[in-house]
Each structure stands twice: as structure tokens, then as C-alpha cells.
């Protein structure tokens, strides 16, 4: 496949996302959320999307704004209910959005499996709970497991800290979260970064996401936002 492209704008980066796409969106709350790419996706207009993310939006920012614009048919996430998830809450309660709740570790591992070419895997998580109902079970060496299938994205929108011109990525602190896993699990991975450096300037020993997983990179200005719980 072709090398990663350095894009001129967030809008160019998401221009080809079609209606009905499955889009993986990184972030844990707002840390690591690709807000500029999500904003560009809202302007682009694609609708009927399935969004895979840890949360279902905070405040009216990023993912929450995409939900508010009614572009999302279904959310697959671990933790939709938060103090500031009122946009999702209203859509869900009025039946305007579908929800699949997935234990956070299974969510991550299902994407890891997609990226690693694993057909399905047996997880001990959720055995005996409502989230395992209807799924194939198997006892392996005396322990019960549930069969979990990969989650593959048409697109992954992720936020990293720094890229080189090849698309090798490094992250910053807990903003790494789902980015490296989602980057592997989508047909097209688009990364927004705060800085693009010349190839050769990133230490090969510390690259977290190798460029092979990254299709497009766009540099965005870092922006500040209110951190929930800050004091």
C-alpha cells in the first residue's frame, strides 16, 4: 500500500468518509480525542455512522457534537453514562440512537484482534452477566469463557502527539489510550497530531504506532479545554 500522506487540513483528511461507515474514535473522555477530525467529519456531513469509542461524548464537544448533529446511528462503547453525557442520554432515552455496551477490555481486545488478523477469541470477561447472553461459551481448563468477535473499522480517527513524515506516531501520557489499537483495526487510519517532524527525528525505540498502520496525518494546533474535575 501507499505511504502515509501528510494532509493539508482536517477537512481534506476526512473528505471520503461515506454514509454508513464504521468509525473508530480514540480517546478516554476528552484525553486523546481527535476533536479536529471529528469537527471536520461534522462539516463533511457523513451520516448513519456507527461510532466505536470508549465514551459517548462529553459536553457538546467532539463526539458529543457529532451525536448532536444526528449523524450517528449506533454507538459501541463501554461507558456512555457520564456526568456530562447529556446529549447521548437524550438521544438514547428518546430512541434515536442504538447502543451496544461492551466491557472496556473486550472493546480494546476486539479491535486488537481485528488489527492482528484474529478470527475471534475467548474472553473470561462478562461470563455470567447480561453482556454475555446469547454468545458462545466454552470451558477451557476448567474456566468459562465467552467468544468475542473482532471490531473492524472502515476508518479510525485518532489523536497522537507527534508524527514524522512517514506517519510513525508517538503519544503523550494517558492520551495514548485507544489510539494505538484503533490505528491497527481500520481500513483507513487518520491521525491528528500536534507536530510533524522530519523523518529520522523520532527515536525508533520509542515509536508506539509504526507508520504501516497510518494512512493520513494532519497537524492541528493543540487546543486547551476545561478538564473535568480540575481544581
Amino acid at each position: 500500500m501507499s505511504r502515509s500522506q501528510i494532509m493539508q487540513s482536517a477537512d481534506d483528511s476526512v473528505a471520503d468518509i461515506e454514509d454508513g461507515s464504521t468509525v473508530l474514535v480514540s480517546g478516554f473522555g476528552l484525553a486523546g480525542m481527535p476533536v479536529d477530525l471529528v469537527d471536520a467529519l461534522i462539516r463533511q456531513g457523513a451520516t448513519d455512522l456507527t461510532i466505536v469509542a470508549n465514551n459517548a461524548g462529553n459536553g457538546e464537544f467532539g463526539l458529543a457534537a457529532l451525536l448532536k448533529a444526528k449523524r450517528v446511528r449506533k454507538v459501541m462503547c463501554s461507558f456512555p453514562r457520564q456526568a456530562d453525557s447529556y446529549i447521548f442520554d437524550d438521544l438514547y432515552r428518546s430512541g434515536q440512537i442504538e447502543l451496544e455496551v461492551i466491557p472496556q477490555g473486550n472493546l480494546a481486545e476486539r479491535m486488537r484482534a481485528a488489527g492482528a488478523g484474529i478470527g475471534a477469541f475467548f474472553s473470561p470477561t462478562a461470563v455470567g452477566t447480561p453482556l454475555a447472553q446469547g454468545k458462545e461459551h466454552r470451558s477451557i481448563e476448567g474456566r468459562e469463557y465467552v467468544l468475542e468477535h473482532p471490531i473492524k473499522g472502515d476508518y479510525a480517527l485518532i489523536a497522537a502527539h507527534r508524527s514524522d513524515e512517514l506517519g510513525n506516531l508517538v503519544y503523550r501520557k494517558t492520551a495514548r489510550n485507544f489510539g494505538p489499537v484503533m490505528a491497527t483495526a481500520a481500513t483507513t487510519t487518520i491521525a491528528q497530531v500536534n507536530e510533524v517532524v522530519k523523518t529520522g527525528l523520532l527515536d525508533p525505540e520509542v515509536i508506539v504506532t509504526p507508520s504501516i498502520y497510518v494512512d493520513r496525518v494532519v497537524r492541528v494546533d493543540s487546543r486547551s479545554y476545561t478538564v473535568q474535575g480540575a481544581r
Binding site: F79, P80, G105
Partner: peptide
């Protein structure tokens, strides 16, 4: 609204 997060894992 159900929200499991990492509790089951």
C-alpha cells in the same frame, strides 16, 4: 443507561 466501563474486566 447501562455503563460498564472496565468493571467486568
Amino acid at each position: 443507561i447501562p455503563a460498564v466501563g472496565g468493571a467486568m474486566d
